[in-house]
Design a protein around this nucleic acid. Structure first.
Lengths: 165, 165
DNA sequence: CCGTACATGTAACCCGTTACATGATTAA
DNA sequence: TTAATCATGTAACGGGTTACATGTACGG
């Protein structure tokens, strides 16, 4: 939300739409989560708001990021991202680095390449250890499929990373 | 947890280890989440437990799935799985179908193929609409990378699905 | 005897979804 | 005038992490 408000001041409703659209592909939030969080963030002085009137009397709260919020956001943006199968922070950071020529992209990609390569190596080692022959595969087919899925996931992630730039 | 207890009776500690190991690759849970949940599940009569003594006096609670729990688990296992970028229920179900010859696998795979193919089509259409030329790509590079990532993810998912059996 | 693993719990806190609740604006 | 969209909130509940808290068993 700090990242979105850093791009332009907007309302909770606007933020909700962003999550429904492109960002929602890999990070989701509903309006019932967004409105209370906006309040909490304002308490923490990361954002402020002004009220705008739409039509005759509909009050719309336009939230703006503060200097403190901007600092926190930038610290986050430049911090390393660990691997997490549920939420990919690296992708989210990439989303906010809109400028193609930003040298930060190369650094971040290199970092992720290393992490995912290490993960892939671990998974491949697990496969060799746990499924040395056909008999082990047949005895625990579900586990075998799932391990293959994780390997496939990491391999395609690596090929996507390598294709950046 | 019902799935794991359906395979064999075990303790909360054993369940924790399962999540730390192979299942944790795509679905995680900590012991501080597991112990209270076991109590709640016992209240709901999905599981029961017996106490086993290890060594001199260490009490170990062995949880067993009930008939009700087994029914609920099997209903879940045979229910369709929707797409969810955070938690892949289909993978989890596959994990519990250990028998390679189970005809259910083919049905589930076909279902997922359809869902992921539809998702891929939507994403590709979005890419054409939102990024018709190089200028649009340069203006919103972060969004472009993220969309490509989602497309890449779906394509590799489909190839993995097609490789099953 | 000492460190690692076994074993089980609670507390505080935020994440996230579904449902409940209300009302205004706008375009057909 | 009516339906879709804009706009903002709360409540209940369970998901999930980090930290706090305690004690036993076992192998070297």
């Amino acid at each position: 939300m700090l990242g979105l408000l850093n791009e332009r001041p907007q309302s909770g409703y606007d933020l909700t739409k962003s999550f429904d659209a492109d960002i929602g592909e890999f990070w989701n939030a509903n309006h019932s989560q967004i409105y209370p969080l906006l309040k909490r963030m304002e308490d923490q002085e990361l954002i402020t708001h002004k009220t705008s009137i739409v039509g005759q009397k509909l009050e719309k709260k336009i939230y703006l990021i503060t200097q403190l919020g901007t600092n926190i956001f930038k610290d986050w943006l430049h911090s390393p991202s660990i691997l997490d199968q549920a939420h990919d922070e690296f992708i989210l950071k990439l989303y906010f680095i809109s400028n193609r020529d930003n040298p930060q992209i190369k650094i971040m990609v290199a970092e992720q390449l290393q992490l995912h390569q290490a993960k892939l190596n671990t998974l491949k080692q697990q496969k060799i250890t746990k499924f040395p022959d056909q008999e082990h595969i047949n005895q625990d087919y579900g586990h075998f499929l799932v391990l293959n899925h994780a390997i496939n996931r990491e391999e395609s992630y690596l090929s996507w990373l390598n294709a950046i730039e």
